[in-house]
């Protein structure tokens, strides 16, 4: 069982938030998320994909085992 984190206003009326509050939250959420989406990606993601691709190409280039290795 996970410990409950729901102790802040757990039983607060959930249906009655002002539309403008909901809208403000929505805009802040998208601003938060869009900032993260726009942040530069670490090189290591691209390096990983390039490495995976290289490995697969090497394997594919050796049909039925490597002649070059003999």
């Amino acid at each position: 069982m996970s410990q409950s984190n729901l102790n802040i206003n757990q039983h607060q009326d959930e249906a009655q938030l002002d539309d403008r509050v909901v809208e403000t939250i929505g805009r802040a959420l998208r601003a938060h998320y869009d900032d993260l989406v726009d942040a530069p990606l670490p090189d290591r993601f691209f390096e990983l994909l390039a490495e995976l691709e290289r490995r697969e190409r090497d394997t594919a280039g050796r049909p039925g085992g490597s002649d070059a290795a003999k």
């Binding site: 729901l6 802040i8 009326d13 959930e14 249906a15 938030l17 002002d18 509050v21 909901v22 939250i25």
Partner: peptide, 16 residues
């Protein structure tokens, strides 16, 4: 809906 309510509570936004 719970998440929104909690955010409002944490941020101290009294609804209206």
């Amino acid at each position: 809906s719970r998440a929104r309510s909690q955010l409002v509570a944490i941020l101290g936004w009294g609804a209206r």
